[in-house]
Design a protein around this nucleic acid. Structure first.
Lengths: 152, 152
DNA sequence: GTGTTTCCCATTGACGCCCATAATTACCCA
DNA sequence: TGGGTAATTATGGGCGTCAATGGGAAACAC
């Protein structure tokens, strides 16, 4: 399972290319598609990204549960339809599609934020504002660690 | 399960490198990532550290519960985005990122404090102050031992 | 053709890897 | 028990490699 940690601030060049952080690329190594799956996050001005593997599992999960339901239709409409497969070039860069640039207001800098099994791309300022807010809300939220597997 | 005990005071060289105490490195041996996961502790000027295994479990815990929820987003923004994977060099040293140095005010010395399943890195003076305070509050608190598992 | 995208190469600065040294600890053996 | 030796640790520094970035030219689409 891929794990994305830390935040990186990278430049967007005049062709619209951005380097995906090397550690993120490493976490995606060995997947069927050499790049990322990206779609506009619902409710916040950021881009959600992960490997093609996770998208396939997501697709399968939705497929299992409720075929032809409203929920299925909604998810399909909001996620699958707006998703983009962004391939890495030789240097590990991706090209941000027009729609995603518009959604995030990204201009000359892109902030990559690790989010565990996925990562996000933000306008630097928007992320800082969001993080401030999130820090407050996360106070008092607790997470129970699931029991350790055998070993460790 | 890794167990970190005792405290150590090590030098930060001019490149920003610090040796992680050998006993801590030994406790992390055999994990998937040869290094530590580190993030700024909330509320106190220290760095929380543990192995990648623990972070993977944390990621899985959150992943299970709620996909695309606000809760998931808030936690991600505060935990995963602020954490760093710090790899050991050949001599068992790590490089402290700018953000963590700023959070702790660490300059030329770093204090490593064992904390059971995790450990912390402090500015030596800040740790002494914190310890003074904690000793007072610990009066009257008690801990129940959990029954031993088979073996050990 | 014109505009876009993909591939390739150059640059630079940070980081990883290697070696050297010193000090401490662990170990062995008389 | 004492001394000596070997091994490990903490530390310093040099250098090669790789990541991030910029730009040109070829391939492609409309």
């Amino acid at each position: 399972m891929a794990l994305f940690l830390s935040t990186y601030l990278n430049k967007v060049d005049r062709k619209g290319r951005v380097s995906v952080p090397a550690s993120f690329r490493a976490a995606l190594a060995g997947q069927a598609f050499h790049g990322v799956v990206a779609f506009p996050a619902v409710g916040v001005p950021s881009i959600d990204c992960f490997g093609i593997d996770r998208m396939e599992r997501l697709s399968a999960s939705i497929d299992d549960i409720d075929l032809f339901s409203d929920r299925q239709r909604n998810l399909s409409a909001t996620i699958f339809a707006d998703s983009h497969q962004l391939a890495f070039d030789g240097e590990g860069r991706i090209l941000l599609p027009e729609a995603l640039v518009k959604h995030t207001q990204i201009a000359d800098q892109a902030l990559f934020a690790g989010a565990g099994p996925s990562f996000q791309i933000w306008h630097p300022d928007a992320f800082r504002r969001y993080q401030q807010d999130a820090r407050g809300k996360a106070q008092g939220l607790s997470v129970k660690l699931r029991p350790a597997e055998s070993g460790s």
